[in-house]
């Protein structure tokens, strides 16, 4: 009984010092407090986990998703996918809602600014499947925005972003503030 209780106590201890870098092939990004991390987790809807407000398919890509790590039951929040174009990880992870997958990427651990258990996922592997890059966001965007005109990356052509900038300016303070700023900036 005592042995069981000690094992249980260890399982309940914070996972702060754990190292998940073994076997990781994640590419370094030079971020604050980054640590390579390869682990097994279940993809979950955090609103469902925390509040009981559960959506089908973890919200089908509209809600954020989290990773419940198998080894310590920690809830890890994936903020970013593998692309370097301002893209989150939901498009890559939501299709695996409720499933156990392996993920490889970078944990950010910088408690001074509140960064704990946040993650950049670079690749993932479903059970019995092959590794795949976590880079589907821009294809997903292109499929949803077939009429986005112009050249350049998605964030220069996204209709919603262009509308916000047209209304409030690049600084968000209105077109007049923008114009005054441009004279110094350029």
């Amino acid at each position: 009984m005592i042995r069981l209780a000690l094992i249980a106590a260890l399982a309940a201890a914070p996972a702060i010092a754990q190292d998940f870098s073994d076997g990781s092939e994640a590419r370094e990004w030079g971020l604050f407090g980054e640590k390579k991390a390869l682990f097994t987790a279940v993809v979950r809807d955090p609103l469902c986990v925390l509040t009981g407000d559960c959506a089908d398919d973890c919200g089908g890509g509209a809600r954020q998703v989290v990773l419940i790590r198998q080894e310590d039951n920690a809830m890890v929040f994936p903020l970013k996918n593998a692309q370097s174009a301002f893209n989150g990880a939901v498009a890559d992870l939501a299709p695996f809602c409720g499933q156990k997958i392996e993920v490889d990427g970078l944990l950010i651990d910088d408690p001074e600014i509140g960064a704990t258990n946040v993650y950049l996922v670079q690749r993932l592997r479903p059970e019995g499947g092959d590794w795949q890059r976590a880079n589907t966001w821009t294809d997903d965007w292109a499929a949803k925005n077939p009429g986005a005109e112009g050249s350049g990356p998605w964030f220069r052509r996204d209709p919603r972003i262009l509308n916000e900038i047209e209304q409030e300016g690049y600084l968000g303070l209105g077109p007049d503030v923008d114009q005054a700023f441009f004279k110094d900036w350029f």
Partner: peptide, 17 residues
């Protein structure tokens, strides 16, 4: 703030929390 506003739009539209 305002310095990062456009990037904040990109990241929000890009699905970053």
């Amino acid at each position: 703030g305002s310095a990062h506003h456009t990037c904040a739009l990109w990241c929000s539209a890009g699905g970053i929390p």
